[in-house]
Design a protein around this nucleic acid. Structure first.
Ligand SMILES: [Zn+2]
Ligand SMILES: [Zn+2]
Ligand SMILES: [Zn+2]
Ligand SMILES: [Zn+2]
Lengths: 130, 130
DNA sequence: ATCGGTTTTGACAATCATTATCAATAACGG
DNA sequence: CCGTTATTGATAATGATTGTCAAAACCGAT
């Protein structure tokens, strides 16, 4: 059976507190900075569990890192993510959903899935960069 | 200036000969099997160059590996990929390009990029599965 | 509250893809 | 052909992620 540990709760809380998508490494670092002695491997395991249970959303950054974000809604949605600080905006994309489904169907593909993520520099990071 | 080497041509040819998306490691392995003494780092560099010049498409596999594929059209486009056999169809969708750019701009994000891949089962694999 | 079987943790090693080094090589304009 | 200079490739370094396994923590039962 699955047990409740303060470590897992700490990861949940840290995810909730994060502005947007974060890497396991970053989450571990910020947890340690706030005084938690949690181990790195535990953070990886907790995030994998959360993603598997649908309590967290995960995606691959452009650089290939796995990023995670608290996901309360549980519904299907997409994200606009700041490449620099991770700030995330949830995106409504019904028209794109339909486009994806129609594109698959047009070519005879079944059981369609899609990966749609938009990256950029948020206003704050854009200002810093210029 | 950019020089023409047999190594770069070998990578081009190997990509053209590959069925679908392949990793740098796989491409290097198959080149060595066909007798080429090409180095691994060179394969990585050639693939990065090809992708940068638009002669190859790249995407991140679910496991985080970078995969490459010969690209005939040259312009910006996306892919419809069979998750069973790897068969790939190139797709263009100006509507979606504009949606991605507009979505980023609407939220003040600059330097927008996007990851848009559609996966499914191709007609042949759909038939086998049913 | 205590006990005991079972799960979880965490320091560390191991993996694995990718990148950096840098001396040796090869391409190409002259 | 020569000299300059980009390119190569063996290898080391990097960096994220996963495996190991003894010790600690959890939780239901006593
Ligand atoms: Zn930002
Ligand atoms: Zn969608
Ligand atoms: Zn198929
Ligand atoms: Zn596009």
């Amino acid at each position: 059976m699955k047990r409740n540990t303060w470590q897992r709760q700490a990861v949940r809380d840290a995810l909730d507190g994060a502005a947007g998508f974060v890497s396991a490494q970053d989450l571990h670092a910020s947890l340690r900075e706030s005084g938690s002695p949690i181990g790195l491997a535990t953070v990886y395991r907790a995030l994998a569990d959360l993603a598997g249970e649908g309590d967290a959303d995960s995606l691959q950054s452009i650089e290939g890192e796995s990023l995670y974000r608290a996901c309360a809604s549980g519904g299907h949605h997409h994200h606009l993510i700041c490449r620099s600080c991770g700030t995330t905006v949830e995106i409504e994309a019904d028209d794109v959903e339909q486009w994806a489904a129609a594109t698959a169907a047009r070519h005879g593909f079944t059981a369609p899935q899609h990966v749609i993520d938009v990256f950029g520099l948020c206003p704050a990071c854009s200002r810093k960069a210029s």
